[in-house]
Amino acid sequence: MKNVKLTIEYDGTGFHGWQRQEKERTVQEEIEKALSKIIKKKIVVHGSGRTDAGVHAMGQVANFVETFSIPVEKIPLAANALLPDDVAIKEAVEVDMKFHARYSATGKKYIYKIYNSSLRSPLYRNYAYFVPNVLHMEAIKEASKFFWGEHDFYAFMASGSNVKDTVRRIDSLHVYREGEIMTIEVAGNGFLYNMVRIIAGTLVDVGKGKILSKDIPQIILSKDRTRAGHTAPPQGLYLAEVFYEKN
């Protein structure tokens, strides 16, 4: 019996999210179909968490437990030959039987990309949030500092979640710009439903002057979703990395 940790990359454009769903194309289903063929057993993988339709991943992590003969290091090459072009296994390693992609995770890093130009780009339409307005970077950077640390992020959680504990810790949040692309990098010990997209939307609203940088602490304390900014669309979001304790 082996426990295998997979690192997976995918373009979320053509998927209805990560989690297997009836009658919908999902990343989990594609991975399970490919693994089941090469291992010749029904394989069920456990992901580090869900990603919504249109959201991409550079470093999604999943694991599965099964008895099989194929060398673990050969799994990516064998599976990728069967997987569609918009998803690939980047690495497969055998790990301790106690490891679980979701429950062993200690944190995650996300990247959110904004295409900020007066003219839209067809090339970025599925990979960044198009914002034609002038965005004031200094105001955005000032606002970003207030998200650092441990807070109750209820105001930055979308409806539809039944999570009771809404306290999360953000370890870093950096905003930088290269040409027309503005990138938000955020890492923390966990994220609420649509939390990163709401933070991104709030920072865009700060950049437009709709929300003042100095008001961010009060918005966090208010626990009022209506006071935070809009939810940025899914195509700008990338799951960059999942963190685990080093053995």
Rank of each mutant, 00 (worst) to 15 (best):
M1Q: 13
T13F: 00
G17D: 02
W18V: 03
R20V: 02
E22S: 13
R25H: 04
R25W: 03
T26L: 11
E29M: 10
A34C: 12
K42C: 08
S48Y: 11
A53K: 15
A57H: 05
G59Q: 04
F64T: 04
F64A: 02
T67P: 02
P71F: 05
E73K: 15
P76L: 11
P76G: 09
P76N: 07
L77N: 06
N80I: 07
V87E: 05
V87Y: 08
K90T: 13
A92I: 07
F99Y: 08
T106P: 09
T106H: 01
K109S: 08
Y112F: 10
Y112T: 00
Y112H: 02
I114K: 11
Y115Q: 07
Y115R: 02
S118M: 09
N126Q: 10
V134I: 13
E138Q: 12
K141V: 05
E142V: 03
K145N: 00
F147M: 09
F147G: 09
Y154G: 04
A155P: 04
S159P: 00
G160E: 02
G160S: 00
V167W: 02
R168D: 12
S172G: 06
L173E: 03
H174Q: 05
V175N: 01
V175T: 06
E180W: 08
M182T: 04
I184D: 05
V186Q: 11
G188I: 07
L192I: 13
V196N: 06
V196R: 06
A200F: 10
T202G: 14
V204A: 03
V204L: 07
D205E: 15
K210R: 15
L212R: 15
S213I: 09
S222C: 08
T226G: 00
T231N: 14
T231M: 15
G236I: 10
Y238T: 14
Y238K: 13
Y238A: 11
V242L: 11
F243V: 11
Y244E: 14
Y244D: 14
E245G: 15
K246E: 15
